[in-house]
Design a protein around this nucleic acid. Sequence first.
DNA 1: GTGATTGCAAATCTTTTGCACTAAA
DNA 2: TTTAGTGCAAAAGATTTGCAATCAC
Lengths: 141, 141
Amino acid sequence: MSTLFCHAMHRLQAVGLRPTRQRLALAQLLIDTAPRHVTAEQLYQEARQAGINVSLATIYNTLHQFTQAGLMGEVVVGSGQSYFDTTSSAHYHFFDKATGEIYDIPEEAINFDKLPAPPPGKVIDRVDVVVRIRNEKRRGD
Amino acid sequence: MSTLFCHAMHRLQAVGLRPTRQRLALAQLLIDTAPRHVTAEQLYQEARQAGINVSLATIYNTLHQFTQAGLMGEVVVGSGQSYFDTTSSAHYHFFDKATGEIYDIPEEAINFDKLPAPPPGKVIDRVDVVVRIRNEKRRGD
DNA sequence: GTGATTGCAAATCTTTTGCACTAAA
DNA sequence: TTTAGTGCAAAAGATTTGCAATCAC
């Protein structure tokens, strides 16, 4: 653990975030469970269960800070709540609406034959792909 | 207008929705402004300005019913609010986070060279692509 | 009439904010 | 110290819900 812990500390410092008790503990928890997709509420519950004394507001702050620092990614699959992705490098997602589960699709598994040019004055920031899946034989939902 | 109105009525009846005053008026408003992407709140304001007496709850009901009936689509670009798309056929989207604007990308403008197989027991429902764009020369977003 | 639809207000859920307190540098 | 970070509770924003009144068939 000390190696990973140390690693987390260095990464936090590298992006200009003070390695506070809460951030280190959350980073550790996220590292231990990676790769995965987590909501703020989920992480909050898990942190409390793990004995990490942290508030929900800090969970939100931390997830956004980690994301902005490039340590995590954000996955948008529905308008309800935000999912944060422990994998920040480029990749895509399967999403099963019925179960709410998100699965990673490695970047190499999808290739664009062609992509449209962005509107004038704009550049492409990134391309999100969500492959929506459902059980065989069931209706759309 | 009577042609379109009649058309809207028939389409509503065809999908099993009673052509009530509110649904017909909203359908008409949506038809008149198509193609576009609209939030519930936007449609609510426009409906009131157009003199359509309708509640926000009914706007939500109606948008979801139209979407479920296949008359509209839903675009997920962020976790804040839902956008409903007057175009229900397959296509993709540009999204400019800075302005909140959504632009259509015709289906032919994107081609997948390869797509991953869905997990066992699952089938692909549809593939959503959001090309996130930003102004040239500016940082992250 | 009868069941679907609507409006309203309250409730719910997720996320953000303001501010006093605490901790890292 | 000095500034960033945290917790709490309240606020904000989007959406849903319960139920009585209303409308389409």
